[in-house]
Design a protein around this nucleic acid. Structure first.
Lengths: 151, 151
DNA sequence: ATGATTGCAAAGTTTTTGCACTCTG
DNA sequence: CAGAGTGCAAAAACTTTGCAATCAT
């Protein structure tokens, strides 16, 4: 945890940004909820527990900044809100998501499944791929079981 | 064009919805701009040219309805707005997008590149895939050329 | 007539912005 | 002190909703 904060601090410094207490608190919340796909509001409420004086605008500004630095990725599952997801340690690409249409749960896939597909896109469309967003919509393991039960 | 409208009309009727003039005008705009990834506002302005009395709320309601019927897909490229994309004729899955980070252009890939990846997800994660969203971010052919020129 | 659909305006959400204040170096 | 960063409140941007009027069967 501390190491990852240290690393982010360096990333900020390298662009002459500071890791202020507010920014640090925000990053800590993200680290503690790495699997949770928090919205800006979610982050705000969680940060507020530790640092009640923080403003929502600061959270937005911080998330925006972290987004530029590629520390987090801003994602959107189609409900009205943006969600913010920490990049995995050393991950070069965005990870994938499995969104369950039954229960709304979101599972993460860290593996990069798209190496072959990316080569194909570069070859066949002449498009130089830098990153990707992949989300599958379907029925998660748990809900499949429950469907069987109830039928 | 007329055939596709006829088909959509049937889809609506099968769920006891009507193809009102407003809805038809909206569908026509979508058909005429199939490559354009229009926002609700875009659609509204274009429909207004032909049917000035239409309201923005109706456009939203129509797009919502078409979305439920899987006539269009609602997508989000990370700017604040939802965009609406007609499903291709006979396409079972959502098509993919190539978003250029230089010029912002959006290219479409109609082929389904994910058949293998989907099998893998079903096998390895026990997740029953129904649909997917795949967007590549990178540099399009045109901007690659221009980068070479200017360097 | 009855129920679906519409247009308008109002309200709701989420996000951004302006500005004075604070902090750090 | 200068510049970056902050909190607050106001504004903006996008979308949804309530309701009376309209339309189609």
């Amino acid at each position: 945890m501390e190491q990852r904060i240290e690393k982010i601090k360096k990333q900020l410094h390298s662009q002459s940004y500071k890791l202020t207490p507010q920014r640090e608190a925000t990053v800590r919340v993200l680290l503690e909820h790495e699997e949770d796909h928090l919205s800006a509001e979610d982050v705000y409420l969680l940060v507020k527990e530790k640092a009640p004086e923080i403003g929502l605008a600061t959270v937005y500004r911080t998330l925006e900044l972290l987004s530029e630095l590629k520390v987090v990725d801003k994602i959107n599952f189609g409900d009205g809100v943006s969600r913010y997801d920490l990049r995995k340690e050393g991950a070069e690409h965005f990870h994938h998501h499995l969104v369950c249409v039954e229960c709304g749960s979101v599972e993460e896939i860290v593996e990069d499944l798209l190496t072959d597909v990316e080569s194909q896109v570069e070859k066949d469309w002449g498009f130089q791929v830098k990153d990707h967003r992949l989300t599958f919509h379907g029925v998660c393991k748990k809900c499949q079981v429950e469907t069987v039960k109830s039928s």
